[in-house]
Amino acid sequence: MLTGIHVAFIGGDARQLEVIKRCIQLDASVTLIGFDNLESIFTGATKRPLTCDVLRDVDALILPVVGTDDDGYVESIFCSKPLQLLEEHAASLQKHCVVYTGMAKPYLRNLLAAQQISLVELLDRDDVAIYNSIPTVEGALMMAIQHTDITIHGSQAIVLGLGRTGMSMARALHALGARVKVGARRQEHLARIFEMGLTPFHFSELKQQVSNADYIFNTVPQLVLTAEVIAQMPQTAFILDLASKPGGTDFRYAERRGIKALLAPGLPGIVAPKTAGKIMAQTLSRLIAEQTITRGSHHE
Results as ranks from 00 to 15, higher is better:
202 H>G: 15
196 M>G: 11
185 R>S: 13
172 A>M: 11
182 V>N: 01
173 L>K: 00
178 A>F: 01
207 K>N: 13
166 G>C: 09
206 L>T: 02
177 G>C: 13
171 R>Q: 07
174 H>R: 10
193 I>L: 10
168 S>M: 12
206 L>G: 09
215 Y>H: 10
206 L>E: 03
181 K>M: 12
195 E>F: 10
181 K>D: 06
166 G>T: 11
187 Q>Y: 08
184 A>P: 02
194 F>C: 14
192 R>T: 15
180 V>P: 04
179 R>A: 12
193 I>V: 15
213 A>I: 01
209 Q>C: 15
183 G>F: 09
173 L>P: 00
176 L>N: 02
203 F>R: 05
183 G>L: 08
166 G>L: 04
175 A>M: 12
205 E>K: 13
181 K>R: 14
165 T>S: 13
174 H>S: 13
189 H>P: 04
186 R>A: 10
210 V>H: 12
168 S>D: 02
204 S>P: 00
203 F>L: 15
196 M>D: 03
186 R>M: 05
186 R>V: 05
171 R>E: 02
164 R>I: 02
180 V>L: 07
191 A>E: 12
192 R>M: 15
170 A>D: 00
175 A>S: 13
204 S>Y: 03
192 R>K: 15
190 L>D: 08
206 L>V: 08
191 A>C: 12
197 G>T: 11
164 R>T: 03
168 S>I: 02
207 K>Q: 15
201 F>M: 04
173 L>F: 06
180 V>F: 08
201 F>E: 01
167 M>E: 14
182 V>K: 01
204 S>M: 08
165 T>H: 06
171 R>M: 04
167 M>K: 15
206 L>H: 04
201 F>A: 08
174 H>G: 07
186 R>G: 04
188 E>L: 09
167 M>Y: 14
186 R>Y: 04
193 I>Q: 07
188 E>G: 03
190 L>Y: 07
195 E>W: 03
173 L>A: 02
215 Y>L: 14
171 R>Y: 02
201 F>N: 04
216 I>W: 07
183 G>D: 06
176 L>E: 02
197 G>N: 11
202 H>T: 13
182 V>R: 00
211 S>T: 15
187 Q>P: 08
167 M>F: 14
180 V>Q: 04
196 M>T: 06
214 D>G: 15
183 G>Y: 05
181 K>Q: 13
178 A>I: 00
198 L>G: 04
185 R>K: 12
209 Q>A: 15
197 G>K: 08
214 D>K: 09
187 Q>K: 10
173 L>D: 01
213 A>N: 03
193 I>M: 12
204 S>W: 00
171 R>A: 08
167 M>I: 12
209 Q>L: 10
165 T>N: 11
187 Q>L: 14
195 E>S: 14
167 M>G: 12
211 S>P: 06
213 A>P: 02
215 Y>N: 02
216 I>E: 05
205 E>I: 04
209 Q>P: 10
173 L>W: 01
175 A>Q: 11
207 K>P: 06
184 A>E: 01
216 I>Y: 09
171 R>I: 01
204 S>R: 05
199 T>K: 05
199 T>D: 07
196 M>N: 08
173 L>Y: 00
205 E>G: 07
185 R>W: 03
176 L>C: 11
196 M>R: 02
212 N>H: 12
205 E>L: 11
173 L>T: 00
198 L>D: 03
188 E>H: 11
172 A>L: 11
196 M>V: 06
179 R>H: 15
207 K>E: 14
197 G>C: 12
215 Y>V: 01
179 R>T: 11
